[in-house]
């Protein structure tokens, strides 16, 4: 069984995101363990990109910090390999297509398999372009995580039917970042997915507080939080373990309340 399936065996999944190498690789490695210890079911590791067009200002700044610090894709492969010596938590990379394509799809995915990455999310690789990498993902046993958005509507059928691992349901228009209100009827989006697939559906974009986690947990299989965590890391830097751990614990509980 793929490790990603295990993320959904413990109630509603809580999926935290952090940018790899922000503020440095050692902190990222430490935080992955801290997140797992505090109830994270799957962790998204951002491979930083110079031009992250789906990100709001918080994650943009994290990518800039990581790249300025000199982190590379190879550093992240090595870091994941170290994590895997002691942890079986499902791990996915979230990045943009150029860092993968430019590295070489074959080589990138072979390295993912080798270091123990379970899936990959590429927000600027929509369904129509995804076949250029899907076969290679399958070859190396890496789930290619599809996304649906509030605008997807009749596109949901084909996207849901080809989904692997879990389906990333984008809660709102626009880019990542904390929002006071999520106005989209995400529950209705997920009901539509259910007509075509029993893939686990996780909601991301804009979620930060316990109340939102509870609401989104109620209509889905899991809750993804990025910017709110990256903001904690931006504030506490290398000393983020305490506050990130507490936050993850609180949100895992909220998603299941």
């Amino acid at each position: 069984m793929s490790r990603i399936k295990k993320a959904f065996e413990n109630g509603k999944a809580f999926i935290p995101f952090l940018t790899g190498g922000d503020p440095d690789i050692a902190t990222t490695e430490q935080l992955i363990h801290v997140m797992e210890e505090n109830g994270a079911d799957l962790i998204e590791i951002g491979v930083p990109f110079s031009d992250p067009i789906a990100e709001g200002v918080v994650i943009q700044a994290a990518d800039e910090r990581a790249l300025k610090g000199g982190v590379t894709t190879d550093d992240l492969f090595a870091m994941v390999k170290r994590v895997r010596q002691t942890s079986q938590i499902p791990l996915v990379f979230m990045t943009y297509y150029n860092p993968v394509f430019s590295y070489g799809n074959e080589k990138f995915l072979a390295n993912c398999q080798d270091c123990g990455i379970d899936g990959i999310i590429i927000p600027d690789l929509p369904f129509e372009e995804s076949d250029e990498i899907r076969g290679t993902c399958q070859k190396y046993g890496i789930d290619l995580i599809n996304m649906i958005a509030p605008t997807s509507e009749e596109r949901i059928e084909k996207i849901a039917k080809s989904a692997e691992g879990f389906l990333y349901c984008v809660s709102s228009l626009g880019v990542t970042g904390v929002r006071d209100n999520i106005t989209t009827n995400v529950g209705a989006m997920i009901e539509k997915v259910r007509q075509y697939s029993d893939i686990p559906c996780c909601i991301g974009f804009g979620i930060s507080g316990a109340e939102q986690a509870k609401k989104m947990g109620a209509v889905s299989d899991g809750v993804i939080v990025g910017s709110a965590i990256v903001r904690i890391i931006a504030e506490h830097g290398k000393d983020s373990a305490g506050p990130v751990g507490e936050y993850v614990k609180m949100m895992k509980a909220a998603a299941n309340s």
Partner: peptide, 23 residues
């Protein structure tokens, strides 16, 4: 799969899902 807007291997539509319908 239908590949749109190709000039040889160049071109395509590499944008987030949110933008695909408006394109």
């Amino acid at each position: 799969m239908e590949k749109k807007g190709r000039f040889g291997e160049f071109g395509g539509q590499y944008v987030p899902e949110t933008l695909m319908p408006v394109l």
